[in-house]
Structures are given as C-alpha cells and as structure tokens.
Nucleic acid binder design. Sequence first.
DNA 1: TATTTTACTGTATATAATTACAGTATATGT
DNA 2: ACATATACTGTAATTATATACAGTAAAATA
Lengths: 196, 196
Amino acid sequence: MLNLTAQQIKVFDVIKESLQSNGYPPTRAEIAKILDFKSVNAAESHIKALVKKGVIRKVPGSSRGIKLVEEISGIPLIGSVAAGSPIMAFENVEKNIHSNPLNKSVDFFLRVQGESMIDAGILNNDLVGVRKTKNAENGEIVVARLDDEVTLKRFKKDSSGIRLLAENESFSDIKIDETSNFSIEGKAVGIIREAL
Amino acid sequence: MLNLTAQQIKVFDVIKESLQSNGYPPTRAEIAKILDFKSVNAAESHIKALVKKGVIRKVPGSSRGIKLVEEISGIPLIGSVAAGSPIMAFENVEKNIHSNPLNKSVDFFLRVQGESMIDAGILNNDLVGVRKTKNAENGEIVVARLDDEVTLKRFKKDSSGIRLLAENESFSDIKIDETSNFSIEGKAVGIIREAL
DNA sequence: TATTTTACTGTATATAATTACAGTATATGT
DNA sequence: ACATATACTGTAATTATATACAGTAAAATA
C-alpha cells in the first residue's frame, strides 16, 4: 500500500476502524470529526485520493458507500472451470468469499459439480476449500487437472503408479499413464455447504 | 427471545446479504425494494421487531445503523449437549465462531457426533449451522430433542404422525408418539467441515 | 519556475435516510 | 372476547449524507 501519504493512511485507518467496530463504513462527517477536520470536504477529498490510488471504492449516491479493495478481493470462489483455462482465471471466478471459517489456509474455493465424491460426504454444489500445491500425500483429496479437465478426486500412489479415485460406486477410477497431461492443482482442506 | 417469523427471517437475511456483498447494512428503502414492500415503513417495522427479539441492534439517527448481534458476540459452537440441559447452556458451548460463511442466519453451530446422517453428506465432527425454530417443514433436517437426547435427523410428518429419519441404513427411524417428550430445537441451514 | 498534488476551511444544496404518525387487515395469544 | 403482534400501505417531517463549488496555502514534482 505504498504511495499513500501520512494523512491518507490516517483516513484509511479510520475507515478500517469503523468497519471493525461498527460493522459499517464511516460518513464524511464522522471521518472529519475523528481526525478533527473542520470541513467535511477534507474527508471527501481524501476519499477521492484513496479511490484514485486504488485502495478503496466509492458507491456514488449511497450513504457510507465505501468499500475496501482488500475486502473486495477476498478468496475467489471458482465455479465451473472452462476447459484448459488456468483454474483461477477471471472467467472462472464466480464471486469472492470474505470470511474463511476453516482453520487451514485456503487459496480458493471450488464449487463441486457432480456426485463423484458423495461417499466422502462431498455433495454437488458444496464449496471445497483448496490449498494450492503441486504434490499430494497418498489418500488426500486433490484438485487435479487431467488434460483439459479439472476434477476433485482421492489421490492414490503406489508401485503401480498414480490413480485418481472417485468416492461413488457408479464412477470408475482413473489411471494416470505417461500419455496423460496430468498435474495437481491443490488439495482439499475443508468444505462449506450453503444449502441443505 | 428468539423465534423469528418467516418475514422477519427474510428481512434478517437481506441485512446479512447486504453486509456480505456490500460491506455495509442496507437502508430501509433498500430492504423494501428487495422484498418488494411498497412502503419503507414495512422495513422499519420489521427492524423494530428484530431489535425487540434481540437479533439486531439499531444505532439511532445513523444511516445504515444496523448491527447483527451474532457478530457482536460470535456464534456459539455447541459440542456435546449434556442430557436434559438447554442446548445453548454455557456448559455446552465449546467456543464462539466469529465468522459465518453461510448466507443464512445461524443461531449456533452444532458439532455432529456419530454417523447417522452420512447419506445426507453430514459426517462425524462436521459443524452444522442451525437456526433456532420450533417447527419444521416436511423433509427438513432438524435438531430435535427427544426426552433428554438432542439429535440431528430428517423431519417427516404425514397422516401417520411424525418420524425422525436417520440417513444411514444401519440406523432405524424414530416414531414420535404421545408419550415422547419431543420438541424441535432448530433446523440445519448449512455445514462447515474443518478437516477432510 | 510552473504545475500539480496535498491538505485543508467554508458554504451550499440536492438527495438519501431515519423515523414518527395514521391507517387497514389478519393472525395469535390470553 | 379482547389485547397484542404481525404485516403491511401511505404521507410527511426532520435529519443525515454526499458532493459540488470557491477559496487559501504549503509541499512535491516536472
């Protein structure tokens, strides 16, 4: 957050503090009072500068219409992954999630499509918290890329090679061979189910 | 203290949704627009009811001056429920959770014990988000109290009466009769799984 | 040096927002 | 049966708020 002046940092901190303790952003008048400005326009000018520098956004015409850009970014929720595209490409981001209730660090949430993991208690539409990593331990549930497809499967590795196991009787396991274009995108560390 | 009506829940959820996606609470006009009220006073009245029931607080004279009580105090995580004790009694609270990723309002999280709901994708140790309510719709997953026991089951009601269904072949259903000391504590609205 | 940015005060105004009051109607509790 | 709660519509007043415009002055930048 370079480039901000000392005063701009103060204004920014007032906005953060208000969000923390009140649950909503401050008005111009509140900022002015806290920082002892005698004109509300001092706050307004600083807000404009902060917008210009990209650390906040304004919602014009809306009272308390200030958003922190760092909270806009959040943790991306990946919906369907377009075949062959990088998993976190803009087009795949459904929305951003602003709170992470899981104890583990999560790089993105992936919305589960299909029933292939129901025996692991992971249902269609669940949000799986994923930690980015290139390699996985035996038995972990991973987000894997096979050629153009991204799938959630249990990772198995032994003398016979690597297999990706579905946890559903009606799905068959996938055997990785040399001709496969295979990589691990991450490992599942938790799930959120928004609807029951 | 609790027991919100259907409409009050809708208003509450609009407030949560606004906080989630905008970062600040809604105005009365915004609530009215979303819920298709033709008078802002409809929203105002519901807000007063929600304050009276203790689930939100108002900051008088302040625009968007609405605070969720659950975010002030955190959402209790109920571990094992001591036989016969009120579900949210102090001794049953494992800790408080300060972020709720579920879109719906949650009165407490319940740590699932046992495998009786695995076919619904709810595993041992999962945290189930529960909204307190006295009655449930057919087919909903409820937290029910039977005599001294608190359990998570699917609620079924028909001409033959009320049954509580486990979602696991090795468990048998429970039939409620007049001699049962039965009540509904709440309904499950989502789950969090911290470990996979 | 000229120009822009920062950092304000002060005034003004349109509109955003809270909130009270007056009703109507149905449902629920006592 | 009667009071209270729920669930609104509609009007209106006061206050809260965003935001533009007109300045002043010092500091940073080109």
